[in-house]
Design a protein around this nucleic acid. Sequence first.
RNA 1: GGCCGAGUGGCAGAGUGGUGAUGCAGCGGACUGCAAAUCCGUGUACGUCGGUUCGAUUCCGGCCUCGGCCUCCA
Length: 459
Amino acid sequence: MTLTLHNTMTRTKELFVPGDPNRVTMYVCGPTVYSRPHIGNARPALVFDVLFRLLRTLYGEDHVIYARNITDIDDKINAAAKESGRPIGDITSEFADNYRADLGALGVLPPTIEPHATAHVGEIIAMIEALISSGHAYEAEGHALFSVSAFDDYGKFSNRNRDDMIAGARVDIAPYKKDPADFVLWKPSSDDLPGWDSPWGRGRPGWHIECSAMIEKHLGETIDIHGGGHDLIFPHHENEIAQSRCSHSGADLARVWMHNGFLTMDKDKMSKSTGNIITVHELSQDHAGETIRLAMLSAHYRQPLDWSDDLLSQAKSTLDRFYGTLDNLSDVDVPAGATPSDTFMSSLTNDLNTPKALAKLSALCKAANKVDDNDERARLKGELLTSGAVLGLLQDDPSSWLKGGVNDDDAEIDALIEARTAARANKDFAESDRIRDELAARNITLEDGPDGTKWRRDS
RNA sequence: GGCCGAGUGGCAGAGUGGUGAUGCAGCGGACUGCAAAUCCGUGUACGUCGGUUCGAUUCCGGCCUCGGCCUCCA
């Protein structure tokens, strides 16, 4: 099956052809670790987790290398350390741990490698030195700066020209820059800030160079897929391309560039400065990780998505339906060698069309609910579970999902249902309905079927 | 001002030059002691004004509205 991906470089969907199908490489810009990730931060992690799972399905689990970095050098981290009086390393390790835990709760697989900027300062310095000696960068007042005029294609990726950039500049232009568009590779650190010795004095890397250096070290000169949020196209990825191509005789940095769209919160911009955010951790208190995950995948990754309580409750009822079907299939076993359905895969391999793929899961459920033949039911169960796995969904125990996990009152609920069953057997419907109302008041919904009464917990 | 993206039925959200995805909600029916779940049926949707076309929601152009980016900020 072929995979088609939208490439930001060409602004079109293209057939994906990796450089080496035995070593498919993907790099995604990860977090700067100074605060808990909010739900907007989770979108790229989730989107590229689905792509990671899809690539592993298509090329084999051992043939995909996915790197997602941790940025642990940054002025916001420095500011957070200063404000709290805590050592920088404490802060970065705490929030890196939070990031892994919060996203792990959403079913995000750990990447193959998770390079840290502070562990690659040597490689960063070496890359800057190479850029200076080849004439693509220069030193000025303790800084090392990339010279955009030395790279003809600068601006091509984000489709902007020099004049526009200068006209729109929101920031004062530093006097030591030869060209206003030049950007920092290395900057000096005062004594109270983290710093490393370098040919240009004690300092720290600029923002963009770490990705270029870590990609080169772990994945190579030209990687298959580079991803991140839409806001990173300029300047971050434009600058990464400039640094990397000038270090590698013009070789492309990535074959495919992918960018996810942004989230809004109840129709307003999601922004830390206005406080209009919600963290993954907060959401996880009230919603299952899988509900949050499905909510995120209910829109195509390049489209804007409005995050709301309504979106979450829709995701919850969709999952209840899926798990309800699986629960009804509990009497049949998944056949050996089960694979995702073709129509599901053709949706997902079409530039990660998760909404369409989810519609295919609905179709599988409908088919499974209708059919009587057990071989066919088993086959559909296999397709449903293996398809769900590519999205990172439906791997929970259906009964456990519907009952909201294991709770203290489970035995009591079972006892009440038993009493109701006895009442029904005696045609004492007043009593049986009383018990059902009592349970309903506790958000327990009953379903009487030929094999007895099932129950589920609605939130 | 420049660049990019978006406007689809009550809601969410795909897609397509010509038989109105999918889910939720609603309505009718089957099933049920009654429900629930499930199944069946049910909707004159594509911002606006023009153009191309036998035919446009889909292509082209203008306009309106909204969002993002425009260098050390992630």
